[in-house]
Design a protein around this nucleic acid. Structure first.
Lengths: 190, 190
DNA sequence: CGTTTTTATTAACTTAAGTGAACGAGTTAT
DNA sequence: ATAACTCGTTCACTTAAGTTAATAAAAACG
């Protein structure tokens, strides 16, 4: 299971055996069940996540309604806003299905950065890349209608539509479950 | 003018005189006129930007129509997607008004990182923070109607509505200029 | 200064999303 | 086994955004 992480990192910088051992020694590989809550609204946590297997979801509770804003699948890292700001979280994070995650925290980062300073560069490059990608995804969202977004998801993340219930997908697309149901009907008729 | 940058950085880490001199020596402070194009669609550039004074805008050309996706004002950094991926840009960047920018590039980064390794940490922290903020902004966008987004902008970035033409603001809000005009009318009548 | 171009507004019409409610299939719990 | 709940669908109705076009107002230019 660790190899999934090491393969991912090695695309940016090959790891020495020492470095790999240091990572394993942190004991950050964790197993979760479908529905497990990783972060609650109001909670303050410095934990960060990296999906090795499975799928996790961010959602807000707006007047008792769940509003899903993001899904993270295999090889996707997530640093919740509250882990950066230190303020209490405005959203929930939960497992969409049984998942294996890396759960990181600042202590473990500190250990790694002090022992292997080049991890700092790795994390900088990763963050910059994630930021640019996030902006591109945001742009795509702004430039598209809900229908175009749905069709784009079919192309770019077809597996996501399989593993996620429709009412979660709907708010992810920025519409109601009813509208998504209607849209799918519209598209079939074409 | 440099002090604006140094004040910004000092909130994360105080700079030594040596470090300040090294930054000034890079000669990265540049002056631009309203309408100047910083990046064109199709262009490959590694340049990054930091707004000291003024305002810059990202926009796509969709079938001859400008679609604005982002504005950057004072103290906001921008690393265009193409500067990260090395691929040709899908969007334009232009000055909304006369501006003073820091224009960075990988060469200058390399010089700084090698001379002062702790800049690497600074950039990592900044990137992580920007990423989390960008995600929060994205969430806010997804959770809100165009009207709620407009009202939110009035609260959070009132100066932006003053300095930017309405047709640019419209696509930034995800609607047409006509819809924005209508919406403003609706709101006045309330 | 007046002319050209750009930007903002308005209107009429079309299309799609929001809302509230009802229904049925499938799942979970007791 | 049946009741309770979740999830997806459908319907009728309302609301707001897209579209096309015309016009007014403002800004840029020579």
């Amino acid at each position: 299971m660790q190899d999934i992480l090491f393969d991912y990192i090695s695309k940016y910088m090959p790891l020495s055996e020492d470095e790999k051992k240091a990572i394993i020694a942190l004991e950050i590989f964790k197993v979760f069940k479908k529905g497990d809550i990783l972060l609650k609204e109001g909670q303050i946590s410095k934990n960060t996540f990296f999906v090795l297997k499975g799928c996790i979801r961010c959602y807000y509770d707006v007047d008792g309604q769940e509003k899903t804003t993001a899904f993270y699948e295999e090889l996707e890292p997530l640093s919740p806003l509250c882990s950066i700001t230190g303020k209490s979280s405005e959203y929930y994070i939960a497992c969409v299905e049984d998942s294996i995650l890396i759960v990181g925290n600042p202590d473990m980062e500190k250990i790694l950065f002090e022992k292997f300073p080049r991890f700092e560069k790795l994390c900088r490059i990763l963050s910059e890349e994630l930021l640019a990608n996030n902006q591109a995804t945001f742009d795509e969202y702004k430039l598209s209608s809900p229908e175009a977004r749905y069709l784009n998801l079919l192309k770019t993340r077809p597996q996501l539509l399989q593993r996620v219930p429709q009412y979660q997908m709907a708010s992810f697309l920025g519409i109601t479950p009813q509208s998504l149901s209607r849209m799918r009907n519209r598209l079939i008729k074409k």
